[in-house]
């Protein structure tokens, strides 16, 4: 059972009306912004199921856009986000779909060069569960190192070794392989903040197809 803190209970300070449909949406937007990690010019957003059905009334669409633009869950601008100059510079389409195979509160972000899926699992807690073809789990509570590497023996051990040398504890590791010997995604949640030099070292050591360091979300 995960530890529950008092601060989890008496937070967040947020714009209403729903922790999962509004604050969760903003947090998803913020996390996707961290993952995409470059200026977002154009994006297609697909809201599913409950996110689609009750999204407009809960400001889910507004929350997602506000998060993508870097606004926090307690920013009162969320209500009017569609009318801001920031939003007008962003080219976005929002679509609504029903799908039995998707979580009730899920959303896809389709960029020209990347697809990210996420869901809001209740109480403002969220999870990014897919980047491109790889399933993973990023909840915004930890700094996360995401890598796509060639599926080769000892790769994980070498990465863990570098992290360990930097005195950082690994909270969890999530791996997903496309096929044997093909690309593997690896999602490493960390208790601390990893130095840039360590990331460079990993790059040199294992030559990943993709490496990205995703900061946890603020409270």
């Amino acid at each position: 059972m995960n530890e529950i803190s008092i601060l989890d209970i008496i937070s967040p300070i947020m714009v209403g009306p729903s922790s999962s449909h509004t604050a969760g949406a903003v947090r998803i937007g913020l996390l996707v912004r961290n993952i995409y990690n470059k200026k977002i010019k154009k994006v297609k957003i697909i809201l599913y199921n409950s996110y689609a059905k009750t999204g407009p009334g809960h400001g889910t669409d507004k929350g997602i856009i506000a998060g993508l633009l870097g606004f926090n869950v307690d920013d009162t601008i969320i209500k009017d986000i569609f009318n801001t100059p920031e939003a007008s510079k962003l080219e976005y389409i929002i679509d609504w779909e029903e799908s039995f195979t998707r979580h009730p509160n899920s959303v896809d972000f389709i960029f020209d060069d990347m697809t990210i899926s996420a869901k809001s699992v209740g109480g403002g807690e969220i999870e990014v569960d897919r980047i491109n073809d790889f399933s993973l789990s990023i909840n915004g509570k930890y700094n996360v190192l995401v890598l796509v590497v060639k599926d080769k023996p000892s790769t994980l051990a070498r990465i863990a070794d570098i992290i360990q040398k930097n005195d950082i504890n690994i909270a969890s590791i999530n791996c997903d392989r496309y096929a044997r010997g093909k690309n593997t995604s690896c999602c490493i949640a960390l208790d601390g903040d990893i130095k840039n030099s360590a990331i460079e070292e990993i790059k040199k050591e294992i030559n990943p197809c993709l490496i990205r360091y995703i900061n946890k979300l603020g409270q």
Partner: peptide, 17 residues
């Protein structure tokens, strides 16, 4: 205020704020 998309404290949730 919560239903107006105003700023509230979810305590423990937005619906019970």
């Amino acid at each position: 205020e919560n239903a107006r998309m105003g700023r509230i404290v979810a305590c423990p949730t937005a619906g019970a704020c």
